[in-house]
Simulated assay, not measured.
Amino acid sequence: MSDDLPVLGYRLKQIDERVLRHPADRAATAALKTIPGVNTVARKLIELGYERALRQSLLASSVRLSLHQLPEVYDRHRSAYTILDIPKTPELYLAAFPVANASTIGSQDPLVLVNSSLLDQLDADQQRVVFAHEAAHVLSDHVLYGTVLQILLNMGGGMLGRTLPTALPLMAVQNALLEWSRAAELTCDRIAALVVRDPLLVCRTLMSISAGTAASRLDLGAFLAQADDYGKASRSLPGRWTRMNLEMSTTHPLSVRRAHELMDWVKGGDYERIRDGEYPRRGEEDPDVKAEAKAAAEHYKERFQGAFKDVVGQAEDATKSVSDWLQKNLG
């Protein structure tokens, strides 16, 4: 067993993931929790076997990696959980798919699925970024909502349509979960930077994925300048609305935005402080809840400008309809 770590022995022992959460993640998660019935619907869909069907669908066309199957790739995956002090390493699967992407699903027993096109495009260090990002979803307890979102996104293929009536207003629930998903990705970029101990490597990976080509053919300095330009342009109200419209139906924020958000956090000093071991441990006194709530509220107001609030209202009606239907027909 190799110790494939950025620095031999480097660990973020018992780190409390709440200190790493992006304000948008805190805000979106808090907003989801205010929607009556959303957790009931999520858990009911999982109880009814939709998660199992999704897992089987993914696993039927992929290969499980291990110490005996692409061991060098599996070791990069495993090292992320070692660094984050997560006791159990999820199973890793590789699928042939033309879109460069990776995902983590499984509300109780997570698994990681990575597309072959992503591995082919990235070098070994960049692959560590991807695996660290996916491990961050496990650390941050994103897997329940993330799995439900994947179920809803797959309903167009008939997985849900055979059981749930198509008249149910699920689109509002899906939109709320998409907004949450984009916010959660910003948290995972922070954690990935800490795992690989190199925020610029995370940005280089985002650049390569966005361009669809090897990072060696691109200029990271120019990409970071582009991210800075984006940050300045998005401060205006028209800029924020343009971004929201561009991202509306996506699970991930724009790559340039992700680089900008990550580097803003690094410049604030938290990255170096946490990297050097100054952070709250799990089980210790809770972080300043009032300060976190205030930061989340301010970010929520600035970024969403009421748009997500409207989605939450629609999702509240939708989840009540779904929850009532499930209770009546399948409870």
Rank of each mutant, 00 (worst) to 15 (best):
L254N: 13
T251A: 13
D198V: 08
P238D: 15
F223W: 11
R18G: 01
P199N: 09
T89R: 03
V311Q: 07
V112F: 01
K232L: 05
R258H: 04
V256P: 08
L12Y: 13
D189P: 05
V7D: 15
H142D: 15
I83Q: 02
G9H: 03
V173I: 12
E17G: 14
R128F: 01
N115W: 12
A60M: 08
L326T: 01
H68M: 10
G306P: 07
T187C: 02
N115L: 13
A293T: 04
D16G: 07
T89C: 14
P71L: 08
A95W: 02
Q127K: 10
W325Y: 14
T187H: 02
S181T: 06
D229W: 01
K232N: 08
C203I: 02
G331C: 07
F308E: 04
P253K: 06
Q327K: 13
K320C: 02
R128M: 11
A183T: 06
R21Q: 04
L139F: 09
A184I: 05
L330S: 08
R11H: 13
I15C: 05
R190A: 12
S234V: 13
E284L: 04
Y279E: 08
G331D: 04
D3G: 12
V195S: 01
A225L: 10
G146H: 10
I274V: 15
K301F: 03
F131L: 01
A176N: 06
G146N: 09
Y145T: 05
I191P: 01
E284D: 15
Q126L: 04
G157V: 03
A214H: 12
P238H: 15
R182N: 15
H133M: 02
G157F: 08
V143N: 06
L113E: 00
H68A: 15
L152E: 04
N101W: 01
E298N: 09
A176Y: 02
Q305L: 13
A215H: 05
A318P: 00
V311S: 03
E91Y: 11
P36E: 13
N175R: 09
F304W: 15
A192P: 09
H22P: 04
A296Q: 02
E261T: 05
A211P: 02
A295H: 06
A233V: 09
T250E: 14
R182A: 11
A215K: 03
T166A: 11
W325H: 06
E179F: 04
V41K: 00
